[in-house]
Amino acid sequence: MTDTSATFTEETLDIAGISLQLRRGGSGDPLLVLHGELGVPDWLEAHELLAQHYSVCVPSLPGFGTSSFPDWLMSVRDLSAWVNWFVRECGLPTPLNVVGFSMGGWIAAELATTNHALFSKMVLVGAAGLKPREGEIWDYFLNSAKDAFQRSFHDHESAQYLKYYGKDWTPDEAEQVETNREAAIRYLWRPYMHSVTLPDLLPAIATPTLLVWGRQDGIVPISSCEIYEDSVANAQVAVIEDCGHMPEMEKPEEFAKTVLKFLKG
């Protein structure tokens, strides 16, 4: 496992109308990481691998982690507007590269439909936002938080599953999981994890796009990947075998290699 101990900073900033938890590491061109609906527990191995090539910026989105949660944020489209605000206030040069996971992929896609100048390249990983052609997006809110993480991984022996999720949580960890669920439910409740208008806007995207999916994604069915592929011009697809909804945690090296190849290509 890559040593991530001293290579990143974590700070709290008053920015874009909120108190923001921000993790950053690496140097070079900026790479914005938009986490998924379960939040991001740490500076992850995948972040570190990407930070060897880019200046990686991982905000905890409003309501997640220790970031504050203003009342006005009620939808993923609101959240997309917030990300745009954050990018400007943070002084990130645009266009910049973005990697969005699940809900974060949905946010990135929303932004790319409305602003062609924001992203240079976009990676959507197990992206939510669309009603799948086949199957249904797994319902986090009919299931426990523990079940959600279990369902997100194909291999329950994988190192990061065991490190963060497949164990007894401390009270603080359990509290954080609940905080993230409270944020997710406000953004995602209905229509559940998808937009009814995004499919019609996807052809507006001009940003070069890579779609990354775990073959065994148990949260967002891989049939959603097909809709993105068919609707976003020239989208590339990388399916990671023996992998669930969180390739960045389950297969960090393969994931980082795939992303870097696309970004550098």
């Binding site: 809110f141 009919l142 426990s144 609940e178 669920r181 409270e182 439910i185 406000r186």
Partner: peptide, 8 residues
């Protein structure tokens, strides 16, 4: 419990 008392 997560049905009787969902997040929030």
């Amino acid at each position: 419990p997560w049905i009787m008392s969902p997040p929030g």
